[in-house]
Write a protein that binds this DNA or RNA. Sequence first.
DNA 1: GTCTATACAGCGATAGAC
DNA 2: GTCTATCGCTGTATAGAC
Lengths: 188, 188
Amino acid sequence: MQSKSTRDLILDCAQGLAQSLGFNAFSYADIATELGIRKASIHYYFASKHDLEAELLERYRVGFIAELNSIEANVVGSSNRLKHYTQLYLNTLKNNRICLCGMMASDVGALPEELTPSLKSFFKEHVEWLEKIMNAGKVDGELSFAGSAQSQANVFLAALQGGLLIANAMGDEAVFSKLSQSIVAQLK
Amino acid sequence: MQSKSTRDLILDCAQGLAQSLGFNAFSYADIATELGIRKASIHYYFASKHDLEAELLERYRVGFIAELNSIEANVVGSSNRLKHYTQLYLNTLKNNRICLCGMMASDVGALPEELTPSLKSFFKEHVEWLEKIMNAGKVDGELSFAGSAQSQANVFLAALQGGLLIANAMGDEAVFSKLSQSIVAQLK
DNA sequence: GTCTATACAGCGATAGAC
DNA sequence: GTCTATCGCTGTATAGAC
C-alpha cells in the first residue's frame, strides 16, 4: 500500500487538532511540528487556513456519508444500524475527540461564513438518514416511539452530539456508552 | 439602582463573547472596544485571561444553581420544572449564544487544566438536579419513563446541550423548541 | 482606576532559493 | 515540492504617568 501523500497527512493532522482543540486553537506551526515539515509547505497545499478548514469540513461530511451508506449495506435491522451509528461517535471519543461538525457548530460564530452551508448540510443529512432508519423500524415493528420519526431523529442526533461533548469534558467514556445505550433502548 | 461596576461590565461582555465565539476566539481588545475602555484596564481587574475565564466559569456555574433553586421555589410540577429548565437554554439561543459550559466542553482540549474541575461540577450538578426532578415526577406519577432517573437525566441534559449547538449552527430557533418539546413530552 | 506606550511571542501569509 | 527568511498583524501582558 502506497504511503499517504503530504496533503493527506496535513488533512489528517489538522482534523485531529480541530476535533480536540477547536478550529481557533491550532496553528500551521502545530501541524508542521507534528509532521516534521515547515509551515510554508502547508501553505503550498492550502494557501489560507480558510481553505484548509473548508476542505476539512467537506472531506469529513462526505466521508461520513460513506459510513452511513456502509452501515445500510452491511448492517441488518434498524436497532443495529442505530447502534453502529453511535459506535462511530464512540470511536472519536476514544481519541479524546468530538465530532468535527459538533466542534464547528460550537465555533460557528467565529467561522468563515462560506462554511456554514456545508455545516448545515451535515446535520441535515444526518437527521434525514436517522429519520429513514426510524421510519423503517417503525414500519417493520422493530422500533416503537411516540411522535414523528423526524422529531425522534433530531433528539437522537442532539443527544449524541451533546453526549460526546459532555463525556469528553468529563473524561469519562462510560458516560457516553451508557447514554447511547439508553437512547437506543428507548426506541424499542 | 446603581449602575454596574466596570468589573461586572467586563464579565458580562466577556461571557457574551465566549458564548458566541468560543474562548479562544475573543480578545481583550474585543472587550475593550465594546466597552469603550482600554485593554490595560481589563488587566487591572483580571491580570491574565485565565483569571478572567476562571471567574467567568465560576460565576456562570453558581448563577445557574440559583436559577435551578428558583425553579424549585416558584414552579409547581415536575413537567413544568423541566419546561422551565429548557426555557433557560432557549433564552441563550435567542441571543445567538450557546451554554457557556457547552462551549467550554467543546474547548476542553485547549482549556487551562485548573478549570476542568469546575466544568465537571457544572454538568454533575445539572444531572443531579434533573435526576431529582425526574424521580419526584415518577413517584407522584406525573412522569413516566423506562430505566433509571439518572440515565434519563443524562439523556435530557445531553439532548439540550447538543440541540442548542445544532440549532445555533442551523440558525433556526425552532429546531431547539421542537426538540425540547419532544423530550419533555416523551417523559409523560 | 484608567490611561499611553511598549515589549514580546505567536499568528497567517509571501518571496524566492534550491 | 520543500525549504529559509521575513513581513505585518494581533495576541497577552507589563511599566509607569496621571
